[in-house]
Design a protein around this nucleic acid. Sequence first.
DNA 1: CCACTTTTCTTGAACGAGTCAAGACTTGGG
DNA 2: CCCAAGTCTTGACTCGTTCAAGAAAAGTGG
Lengths: 145, 145
Amino acid sequence: MLGDMTAPDFQQQLRDVALRVTRPRLAVLEAVHASPHADTESLIAAARALLPDVSHQAVYDSLHTLTQAGLVRSIKPAGSVARYETRTGDNHHHVVCRSCGDIADVDCAVGHVPCLTASDSHGFVIDEAEVIYWGLCPDCSSRPL
Amino acid sequence: MLGDMTAPDFQQQLRDVALRVTRPRLAVLEAVHASPHADTESLIAAARALLPDVSHQAVYDSLHTLTQAGLVRSIKPAGSVARYETRTGDNHHHVVCRSCGDIADVDCAVGHVPCLTASDSHGFVIDEAEVIYWGLCPDCSSRPL
DNA sequence: CCACTTTTCTTGAACGAGTCAAGACTTGGG
DNA sequence: CCCAAGTCTTGACTCGTTCAAGAAAAGTGG
């Protein structure tokens, strides 16, 4: 069951970053992989579909750990709760619908590392540029309130 | 005030956007103008320095109203509470220190409207691109933990 | 395969920025 | 000056997230 060949090898992913392989972590990893941009509540539900008795705290903890390890990435658009995805390390950004909060991935038009060098960084040592495009998703823009 | 001719006329700003001129709003506008990137708690304190008995709720409400009217702009970097500034409409972005949370303004290297056209917007109608540069401020980068 | 050490998970309570609601007060127009 | 609409005060409350203590599981060395 957890050795599904078509899906990423989550066990191996955990070992690769020197994290212990636990069922909560596997369930969370699989849940995030299956539902990109899902919020924590949904992920708790999804993780429980795989491991019925996981505590919400274990999910929160796993998400933090996996985020720090770089296996998942968290995004928190203003006005939204935390959301997670497994697509990491490829410098992609997000479009967020102002109306329904839906999120989609976008690659920057510039192609890579957009605007990473600010004109005047005030002495800050910058290591990441996070871009959020705000607008309306197809559904919401075609169905104005 | 004190002969400062460059100080914005906050009363006029409110009238220009068809908002009622109330003392809480003036106090909040002035507070935000005086302390760019301040969080709500600081702004409540700053507003009370000008108008001792403002309720926190009036400050929250004013901030929302002023934000909607475009007189102030709010920013909420992940892991931080809401912060506000009066510099609006000039497409500038922010550098946020991962360590101390300090924020500074930056103009995008591209000069204007950076990356506003995503490569594939998935049908979203985009109206704004928000950029946050993450890194370490001068103090934190020179004094590693 | 077992005992041990460390990390992780469970349970349950707590926190705090922000929001809601009802009634009193202001603002600005007439 | 008066009034209706819009704002503010007060105080309770929500809910995503975090904290804490003890129980359980993972990995390690014997």
